[in-house]
């Protein structure tokens, strides 16, 4: 019964793996992997010396680190605030609205953002209403980075809060009752009971998200990127795609491997740490 899954995995996931040796060649499609000449680590050296690729790696880390930090702080805060609402129907309605963007693809959200954030779009109508200069949200490098981080929050903060909301409902009510007898207020309860109880799951989510340090989200950036902001907005995945389109197969593969290898170490390290610290297992 395992056979279909094993076959698909072998063909589509394992079979491409030997293809990574292209990174050590000067690959020519008409010669194939067998006929192309070997160049050793040259492609990797090129990657770390070329201005473009160094900048791209830096952009990726910059964007994804900020995404990881905000993507942790905002959902936790949101879960804590939502937890204070005792009106169930209201709580449900808020959840329904904030989870919705998670299910839309970046093509849809990208299309919406392009319309909303364009020079004559809705966002700039608000900006000019305050007599400010219109903002090039997607045409200026720094604004682009901010837009990318904020729009990622918009899409994911609600959905990321689910795991914290689940943890909140699992806290033993006896703790709160006891603290009330001791005269603790709600703020003290939050600081000394709620947050410490959430800490293990916060650590797990944080460690696992570290695996994404070189993964700044291709779908999002690719749909918002334009030549004006290439310098500050280009990330590893979009760079690999363009290098591949430009026919530099070996360089694209090398950059791809660099990303996969770092990701592999961080993800497996993250799972190991989460297992040791919080006894978190997936299998």
């Amino acid at each position: 019964m395992l056979l279909p899954a094993v076959l698909v995995a072998l063909v589509f996931k394992y079979a491409p793996m030997p293809g990574v040796i292209m990174a050590f060649q000067e690959f020519k499609p008409w010669l194939g992997v067998g006929g192309s000449s070997w160049v050793g680590w040259d492609n990797f050296k090129l990657m770390f010396t070329m201005h473009d690729s160094v900048q791209v790696i830096w952009n990726t880390i910059f964007i994804s680190v900020l995404k990881i930090l905000f993507g942790l702080v905002v959902p936790v805060t949101f879960a804590l605030l939502l937890n204070e609402i005792r009106h169930i129907a209201l709580k449900r309605s808020i959840q329904t609205l904030v989870y919705l963007p998670h299910f839309m693809s970046w093509v849809i959200l990208g299309g919406i953002l392009l319309d909303l954030l364009s020079l004559d779009g809705f966002a700039n109508r608000l900006v000019t209403a305050f007599h400010l200069e219109p903002i090039l949200f997607l045409g200026d490098g720094n604004w682009f980075r901010a837009t990318v981080i904020v729009s990622d929050l918009w899409k994911e903060f609600g959905f990321s809060a689910i795991v914290f909301l689940a943890a909140l409902s699992g806290i033993n009510p006896a703790l709160y009752e006891a603290s009330e007898i001791d005269g603790a207020g709600r703020l003290q309860q939050t600081l000394y009971i709620t947050l410490p109880s959430l800490l293990p799951i916060i650590i797990v989510v944080f460690t696992l998200s570290l695996g994404n340090v070189l993964n700044a989200n291709f779908d999002q950036i690719f749909n918002l990127l334009n030549p004006l902001v290439l310098e500050k907005g280009d990330i590893i995945d979009t760079y690999v795609y363009r290098t591949f389109q430009g026919g530099q197969y070996s360089l694209a593969t090398a950059v791809g491997i660099f990303k996969s290898a770092v990701g592999f170490v961080l993800i497996s390290g993250g799972y190991y740490f989460a297992y040791k610290v919080a006894n978190y297992r997936i299998f």
Binding site: G19, V240, A252, S260, G263
Partner: peptide, 22 residues
Amino acid sequence: FYVWFFLIIMIFDAGLVPHYML
């Protein structure tokens, strides 16, 4: 064995170009 077989494809990816070639 199979648990690891599937875990590996979750954490290691060959990248865009090898996938395309395949």
